[in-house]
Every structure is written in C-alpha cells, then in structure tokens.
Nucleic acid binder design. Structure first.
Lengths: 200, 200, 200, 200
DNA sequence: GATGAATGAGCATTCATTCAT
DNA sequence: AATGAATGAATGCTCATTCAT
C-alpha cells in the first residue's frame, strides 16, 4: 500500500530526529530521506520545529489514548500498572524512534509549541501517579518515594526503545513481562512465585 | 580560589552541552559563556567535538576509577551493588551536567573519538554485570534477565541527573538509599525490613 | 545575448583567480563579481576548489581538442609545430585569464582533482614532444635537448598571456608569427629568408 | 656553521612562498617551519608582506649586482648576453625558490612595497634590453621584436627554476649552455658550429 | 629573545526558509 | 504538487597581528 508524501516526510523526520537529534538533522537531510527537494518539503510541514512538535504531539496523544483505554474500568492497581507497563514497553519496542523523539526533545521546543506537548505528557504521567497512589492507599504498593519511583520506572521502561530488537534473543512478550515484574518489585508488590526463591 | 581559563571553558561546555545539546550549542555560545572571544576558545580546546570527547572521557574515567576503588576488596555482591548504586547516584546528583553529557552524546562522536569513550563505558558497565553475575551465581540475586535488568537499573539511576536538586525535598542520602532499595528489589534481594510490610 | 548565471560565476572566477590567485580570492570576492550572494554561489559550483578544477579542466580540454584537430593529418613537423605554436599563442592572447589560471594553479589542487588536470596537460604536451621528436628523426629539427627545448618554448609562449593586449602595438597575427619564428629558431630550423641576414 | 634565527625564518618563508604561494602560506606554517612560535616570528620580520618584499628585494638586488659585475667592461653584445643568460639560469637553478618567489609575487605586493621591487626588476631587465639593443645596432642580433624576444627569453630561462634538479640528467653547465644557445638562436645569432648541421 | 594569551576580522561553507514559476 | 533560484544569518574554524610577561 502506497504511503502519502506527507507521511513519507514524517517518517523520515522520525528516523532522523531519533538517530541524529533535532539540531543534528538538517533540512537537506530530511529532503533527501523523503526524496523531495528541500523546497517541496515545505508543502508538507510548517517549520522544522513544527514538524517536530507534530510528531511529539501525535505520539503522545496516541499513547495517552491507548493507556486511557487500557485502564478504563480497571480498578485493581496491580492490574492497572501491569497494563500501563505493558503498553508503554510495547510502544517503546515497536516505535522506538517516535518514542525516543518524544523522550529526548521536550527541551528543544520553544515555549509556544512546548505547552501542548507538556500537557499531554503530564496527563499521561498522571495515569501512572494516580495508579501508584491508589495502590499505596490500598496498601498493595509499598514504596517510600512514590514520585521518585514513578520516574525511575518510566526511565527504566523508556530504555527499551534504545536496545530492543525484534530479532534479538527476547520476544516482546518476554520484555514486557520482565518490566512488569521489575515494576511490581519496585512498587514492593509481593509476587508469590518469587518471594525470594526461584529464577524465572 | 581562581579557576583557570581552560577550566572555565570546560565548565561552560558542560553546562551548555547538557542543556542545549552538542549540536544545539554554538561555538559563539561557548565563547560567551566562557567570557572569551570565539577565537580565543581555540587556545583551550581542539575542535568542538574534541572538547566534548574530553569531557566525556574524563567524567567516565573518574566514575570508573571511583567505582573500582569502591568495590575493591568487597566480595559480597549485595554490598558491592549497594556501593555501585550509591556512587552512581551520587555522581549523577552532584554532577548532573557532566553525566547527562556522557549519557546522551555517545552517538554524536565520530568513530575515532568514540572508541575510547565506549571502552571506558564498557569497562564501567562490566563492573555492574560482573557483580550481578556473581550475585546470581551465589543465589543472592534473583533475576531472569540479568542484562536487561542491568540496563534498567542504570537507566533508572541515570534519571537522577535530570530531576535531583539539593534544594529539593529529598537529601542526596535519601535518594541514594532509595535507589539502592529499588535496585535490590529489581535484583530480587529479600530486604528483611520490607518483605511486604511497612512504608519506609 | 544573455549570459547564464552559472557562466557569470565562472567568468568572475576566471578573472579573479588569474589576477589575485586562488588563495588570494575570497568567496565573497567571487560573489560580488558574479553579483550574487555568497550563499547563492553554491547553487552554481561545488567547492571553490572544484570551481577552479572545472575551469582548468575545460580550458585544457578545449586546447587539447583544438590542437588535436589542428595537427590532424599534418605530417610535416615544421607545419605541425607552426600550427601548435599559433594555436597556443592565440589561446593565450585571447583567453589570457583562463590560460594563466591553468598555467599557475596545478599545485593548488588536491590530489583527487589534480589527477585529471595533469592527464590533460600531459596529453597536450605529448602533442608537442611527439612533433619535436618526429622532426628530429627526420633531421629537420636540430636541438640537443629536446625536452628542455619543449619546456622553454612552452614557457616562452605562455608568457604571451601576461603582456599581450589587443590594443597594443602588435597584432595577434604578428605575435603568433613571431613566436613561430622563435620556436623554429629554437628547434634549429633554417628559415631561408633569415639565415643570418635581414630584420623581419 | 650555525644559521641565525632570522635567517631560518627567511629560509622557511622562501621555501613556503615558493611552493604554496604567499596567500597559501599561513603565519603558522612559517612559525612551524622556522621552529618558532608565531609570536616570536615577529621579532624577525615586520608583517608577512614585508617579509615577502624583503626576500624579493634582496634576491633582485643580488641578481642585479651580479649581472652588473658580469657584464662590466664587456663590450661584445654576444658575450654580454652569454654572461647574462648564464648568470640568470644559474641563479634560477641554484636558488629556485628565491627566484620563483620573485617571479610570481610582484602583483601580491601593495603599491608601497611594490615600488622598490619593480625598480630593481626594471633595472635588471634594462641590462638585457640595452644589450639586445646594442647587438641590434651592431647588426649581430637579428630580431624583429626585440622587446617581445627579451620577454620570451627571460620567461624561457625563468622556467629552469621549476624543473632543474642537481640530481637530474643534465649538469648545470649543460643547462646554462643550452639556454645560451637558445637565446642566441632567438636573437638570430649565427653560431657557426650549428648553422643548420649536426646535433650537439 | 621568546611565548602564551588574546582578539577582531575573515574564512569557506551550510543553515532554514521563501518565492516565482 | 514540485522545484530551481535565491538569500540573510549562522556555522565551526583560521587569519595575521599584538602585547604583557
């Protein structure tokens, strides 16, 4: 199935921004990767910065929507966190470039464009903090520094985008499960099969 | 106590590279921050890239040396990992800019300059993997994916450089201890005071 | 008749390189002479050095082609040398800048770009040495050092580019004829009207 | 025997100006070649341009003095030209760098510094034109364009600096003699041993 | 006599962007 | 929809030169 030119531009941008960084990517690099002249590029984007902001916005919106759906109606904090981690890790493994662009470029945006992106990111992180807080209140999570733990867990899961390969030794399922496990341990959840005993 | 001009250049570079990125930092930004003309800058550095590589090399060398000292003669894997985490977190909290430069810019370096930096980083990470492996062999660590866990723990600890403030709610001691705790949990170490019970 | 912008750039370069030298000509000088911004210049050239190499290559190629045509089918060494000198002097008188650029800048080129230029120059000079050699074999040229004589004659003819003016006392015809005469004398050809007697 | 620092500077400059050109030679190149810091260089020279002018001036002065001595008291135009050519070729073969600097850099000098150099050069060339004129008046030289011939002969002899090597096939004596021969032929002098007959 | 430090001006080249076609 | 042409501003870096030590 053919891909529209605008989509080709966006994909080129995602790949280049992720690997070379926003400032390390020139408009000519983008044009070449999108097989367009640099002038034509401007039919499909505003400025280079708006292109970046658009990518970040869409990626975060999708993540937020998916996460909202995933935990919708789920009350159990353990199950909620399980789903959040799985979704987060899956997204980072499947779209490593998009997620790396999102995770690494917030400071690059000028205030005007940053606002919306930050709002989306905060809304997304609130899903996590709310869940962690709920688990603490219910006594199923045991962590002295919930905010720090949340950041730590997210950083840990973000890292997947930098090393996971579908051709690697681990399946995506295994990686996701492992991070669920790590997260539950970080949150002090007593996973019975594991209390101090066998290797997985 | 006076600071040498060369040191001033390096400090300016550390701050700017950390906050704006290598490609986002111009030679004129550096000059202004170091209170020098851009021409004078070149008395104290080679190229901009060599300046970056020098910063990364020194920071990693210090970290590697300190870590080597810290675990020297310590046999117990739990104690070793405790020290590694404490040192790592402390470095990231005290020199957030240096460590962010190191953590974010390896891909920026050209092959020639990257080599040495990668060697240092690998030597440092080997301290971690060796320790984790030893703990697994002794049966005190319980993790199905030691390599993934190592990366996860390092990413988690690296994050400290992005949010810790000496003027924040937590002392450096508390942050370090918390990350030791998180790490031990990730490694499946049964910390008695915590097996499923009280908040810290 | 209008001149294309690319041609304007090339002409400006020829004039400036000839009069101020390659290193003495800045990109801004070129831009000003070509009535373009220095950035626009780069739509019409690669690097400054490639511009130079292109000029040299084209000039030499034309000279080589013209000389090849001029002596094509001509067997008599005296007539051949007559034509080579006439063509060479004419080219140096009519395009003094191009030829000066060619004659003065071979050492400026980096190896990559020098190769082709040197090949063309050598092919051109081979026309001369082959002709001189043939004349010697036939006994019509009398010179003890044919290689040195060839260089001497070429240097002598090259000089025309530095002083000839269409508004000067001598016509191009006269200058060419005079150099033919000088060359034949250098080659020891006995021009009857002249064996030691009258002024021309 | 030791060479003074000032002399070392001058020699470095001669070599570099000759091979890379004035504009192609940086002050740092000079300093490196003279084994001095670039600041120290300025103890031994004025500006870079004055260094160039000094070299040209001295070289021309020596040439002029030597040539004046060489023809002093010699009346016969043939003998005079013989001596001028021998001296000129010898100088160009023995000091190829100095003479190339002189021959190639007159246009580089600013008016102030150019004046004296041009005067010396003109005085030197007057020795040649006076001699040629005298020969013509006496009927021993036969050339229709004495001025053009003078330039041609000088260009021809200058070329020696670009190819002569003491390790080459020809001795300096042979090269000088050959150029004397070429010059006499150009001036239409009937050298008996040669009138149309054997190879040398 | 020698140099490290310093710099304003300049270098060739690339930047992101616009616009007429 | 697409691009060649164009540019002001900026890029990293080097220039020749000065001066305090």
């Amino acid at each position: 199935m053919a891909v529209s030119t605008g989509e080709r531009v966006r994909r080129a941008a995602v790949k280049l921004f992720a690997t070379k960084g926003f400032h390390g990517t020139g408009i000519r690099d983008l044009a070449q990767a999108a097989k367009l002249s640099s002038a034509s590029l401007y039919h499909y984007m505003g400025t280079k910065e708006e292109l970046l902001a658009g990518i970040m916005r869409d990626c975060l919106r999708r993540l937020l929507d998916d996460a909202t759906d995933a935990v919708d109606g789920v009350a159990d904090p353990v199950e909620r966190i399980r789903r959040l981690v799985t979704l987060h890790v899956t997204a980072h493994a499947r779209q490593p470039n998009e997620t790396r662009v999102v995770d690494d470029h917030i400071d690059v945006l000028s205030p005007r464009l940053r606002r919306e992106v930050v709002q989306l990111r905060d809304a997304y992180e609130r899903l996590w903090s709310d869940t962690i807080e709920a688990g603490r209140k219910e006594g199923v999570f045991d962590t002295g520094q919930p905010a720090v733990t949340r950041i730590a867990v997210l950083d840990m899961c973000n890292g997947v985008a930098r090393w996971y390969s579908p051709r690697g030794a681990l399946t995506l399922r295994q990686v996701a499960d492992h991070h669920v496990e790590l997260t539950l341990r970080a949150l002090g959840v007593h996973t019975p099969a594991r209390c101090g005993l066998a290797n997985s």
